[in-house]
């Protein structure tokens, strides 16, 4: 039961990954790509970590740390990248 649930989590995470990474190939603006990438990558990664947590609950401190750092760092990184790249656009 738990095992199938964790596989479902992996599947959802992988779908999020592909869904968020696919717009990278298009010819859209940096901010559009950044939005889809940060949202889908973070959600997909969190879902994969939850799947791992269900599979092996013994390593919960490690996976919890991964979850927290993933959530915080990816949001901050999204802001920093958007700030840096848009400042360059207004300067040109």
């Amino acid at each position: 039961m738990i095992n199938t649930l964790s596989y479902v989590c992996f599947g959802i995470g992988l779908i999020f990954w592909f869904w968020g990474t696919w717009p990278l190939l298009g010819d859209r603006s940096v901010l559009y790509k950044l939005h889809s990438l940060s949202v889908a990558d973070t959600l997909g990664s969190i879902s994969i970590v939850v799947g791992l947590l269900l599979k092996i609950p013994r390593e919960w401190p490690l996976l919890l740390l991964a979850l927290i750092s993933l959530a915080i760092w990816n949001t901050v990184l999204g802001y920093v990248l958007a700030y840096c790249s848009s400042r360059e656009d207004t300067y040109d």
Binding site: W17, V30, K33, T42, L70, E88
Partner: peptide
């Protein structure tokens, strides 16, 4: 260069 940075961010997480 910023598209490359996005790709780098994606690769680092993955």
């Amino acid at each position: 260069i910023w598209q490359k940075m996005l790709a780098f961010a994606s690769v680092a997480t993955k």
